[in-house]
Nucleic acid binder design. Structure first.
Ligand code: ZN
Ligand code: ZN
Ligand code: ZN
Ligand code: ZN
Lengths: 132, 132
DNA sequence: ATAACGTTTGTTATAATATAACATATTTGA
DNA sequence: TCAAATATGTTATATTATAACAAACGTTAT
């Protein structure tokens, strides 16, 4: 079992950085930021990222190959994720909408496939960027 | 304007391959498949892919870095895409569900952001794979 | 304690995915 | 017909991600 309320050293370091960040972080940018802490190789980052995703602590923004901290509680262990993404400033916001989440979690494919998980990414221009 | 009902040579070659494929194709697998036709470099593939996506002829499955032909008509120029993905056999099926599409197209972020586009990916085990 | 097991780490190398930059060619359309 | 836009060919490089292996660490059961 994925026994882990407690994070390992590298996992904690990577999570800290992602949580402190204002926006999504890329794996190699995380790597450059932790070299002072003795983490030197991509593997170390990707391994931590994989575990953090499993635990639901972070999510991967697939359209950007970048990672954000989970700010929601609806998305139990990353089974139901939704994001709002600004195409101008790259801001990402996790959408926590019970109705949306329920609607999609209950959605079933006409062809009989039962879904275990979904990821939804909305794109647009955020308020801040619209002012320009 | 991106005026183009007619595809260029490379675009047509790439689209043909994607349309004939049973599942999603990766860029480099497309490349290997068209080297006999004189296409030798990744750029040529990626350029064609970009245009085909713009035209709505194909979609990118973000979670797989792979490309499928559009089988729907609801997703006008790729503004509203939804897929069902089998985690076992990698099968991808474009979901064409008017209610779902309307629901999501009408969805607005609480924080006031107006969405122009979305991409939704559902994951599960397909019927065929369940039999095993 | 200590052996056994699973997990995490460190490390080197390499694979897979994608873009930059620049020179030419082709198509379009005023 | 000539300028603009689009598409192509090509070489090089950047970015993202995994393979493979050895060592250390943390549990837990004997
Ligand atoms: Zn979350
Ligand atoms: Zn913005
Ligand atoms: Zn489509
Ligand atoms: Zn399947």
């Amino acid at each position: 079992m994925a026994r882990a309320q407690t994070l390992s050293r590298n996992q904690q370091i990577v999570l800290d950085i992602i949580e402190k960040a204002k926006g999504p972080l890329k794996a190699y940018s995380i790597l450059f930021n932790v070299q002072k802490k003795g983490i030197n190789a991509p593997q170390q980052i990707y391994r931590a990222l994989d575990k953090l995703i499993e635990m639901g602590k972070i999510h991967k923004i697939e359209s950007k190959n970048a990672f954000v901290a989970c700010r929601s509680s609806d998305c139990e262990i990353s089974k139901a994720t939704a994001f709002s993404i600004c195409e101008s400033c790259e801001m990402v916001d996790e959408i926590s909408d019970t109705k949306l989440s329920k609607y999609l979690s209950g959605f079933n494919h006409k062809k009989g496939m039962k879904f275990k998980r979904f990821n939804l990414e909305f794109f647009g221009i955020c308020k801040k960027c619209k002012k320009d």
